[in-house]
């Protein structure tokens, strides 16, 4: 199995020490060996379930939350906004 722990950690925004990386690499190898026990079958074609149609929501406005209760759980707040470290604009 070729698993680039560093790259995956980066994608998942996780950080590991070199020791942890080794530990995870080993554990992941076992787990992947387990999950590779899938039957041989043709997995082409899209993943879609036409027998399970969705009920749409009507386009109506409902408002029942105040800004204060919505940002009450935020670690850092300023001027009614949630604060993060300066970002390079994208």
């Amino acid at each position: 199995m070729d698993m680039d722990i560093k790259r995956l950690a980066k994608l998942a925004r996780l950080k590991f020490t070199p020791e942890e990386e080794e530990k995870y690499a080993a554990q992941m190898a076992n787990i992947v060996a387990m999950v590779e026990k899938l039957p041989d079958l043709d997995a082409s074609g899209p993943l879609i379930d036409p027998d399970n149609p969705m009920e749409f929501r009507k386009d109506e406005v409902q408002r029942n939350y105040s800004r204060n209760e919505l940002i009450a759980n935020a670690p850092e707040v300023q001027a009614g906004c949630i604060v993060v470290p300066k970002t390079v604009a994208e």
Partner: peptide
């Protein structure tokens, strides 16, 4: 320019006070 947002019933409006058109 729908009345409400795509996945919730918050108002779809431009230029409102910050974080005043939101829900969980």
């Amino acid at each position: 320019n729908t009345k409400s947002k795509i996945y919730c019933s918050c108002r779809n409006a431009f230029g409102a006070e910050v974080n005043s058109q939101c829900c969980p």
